[in-house]
């Protein structure tokens, strides 16, 4: 499957010392094709956060390989991983993680800054993107002046600004009320509709149910990988 954005084989992750290792991931295999929109669900401690960290190149697997668009990134150096995160992955966090000292525009600019995009070009792209998420009236506000929903939209814009191949969202609606949560989910569905590849961690069964694919984790392995299209096809047959 060469068109897989993510191809993980036998990934294990251990923490702790060599004598008393704590196994968080126990041999995970996972393929995420381009344009997929998957939810990762599971109880806390099931390893979904660790899986997301590895998918986001924030962490390296102890064993196994991780191919991002066919390139093995499981043994890259710290600096190379930084580059991968910068150019190919977009993060959306539960608590937004906007930098309080920077304005909306500056926050969205951060990934472009580390990608060495010239200032003027940066401004142009950021402003266009913020307009697309409906925040062109908030460009020079600080995050503290925005509502939670607005903050998360800024964060989504920031995740998209470098045109990543993989968008990772860790409970993006966790800190939002239902209305704003629904708005943000609408945005994700819209992005999926545009062909983006999205992996989203959620505790909310309603949100998970609305996604085309649900990956259920338990005790460091994938318990069930459940794609609706397949189900629908099976049902149709």
């Amino acid at each position: 499957m060469s068109d897989s954005v993510v191809a993980i084989e036998g990934v294990e992750k251990q923490y702790g010392t060599a004598e008393t290792p704590v196994c968080v991931l126990k041999g995970v295999d996972l393929q995420i094709p381009r344009g997929d929109f998957a939810a990762v669900v599971g109880a806390s401690g099931s390893g979904k956060t660790t899986l997301m960290n590895i998918l986001g190149c924030l962490d390296r697997p102890t064993r196994g390989t991780y191919r991002l668009e066919g390139e093995d990134v499981s043994r890259l150096s710290d600096a190379a991983l930084s580059r991968v995160r910068n150019r190919r992955i977009g993060f959306v966090f539960q608590s937004f993680n906007l930098i309080a000292q920077l304005t909306v525009v500056e926050n969205v600019e951060v990934p472009l800054f580390y990608a060495r995009v010239p200032r003027r070009e940066r401004r142009r792209r950021v402003e266009a993107l913020l307009e697309a998420v409906g925040l062109s009236h908030r460009l020079h506000h600080h995050p503290t002046q925005l509502s939670g929903g607005e903050c998360q939209r800024v964060a989504v814009a920031r995740a998209l600004v470098n045109e990543p191949v993989l968008l990772l969202a860790d409970e993006p609606t966790g800190n939002l009320d239902s209305h704003n949560g629904a708005e943000v989910m609408k945005l994700f569905h819209l992005l999926h509709g545009q062909g983006r590849t999205i992996v989203l961690v959620t505790h909310n069964p309603e949100i998970a149910a609305a996604l085309p694919r649900v990956i259920e984790m338990r005790d460091g392995s994938i318990l069930r990988d459940h794609a609706k299209t397949t189900v629908a096809a099976a049902g149709g047959a």
Binding site: L58, S82, R83, R85, N97, V110, Y114, A115, R158
Partner: peptide, 14 residues
């Protein structure tokens, strides 16, 4: 902030 910058692609030397 450092964590966020690192996640967004800042290298150690950045």
């Amino acid at each position: 902030e450092i964590g966020v910058r690192r996640a967004l692609g800042a290298t150690r030397s950045d």
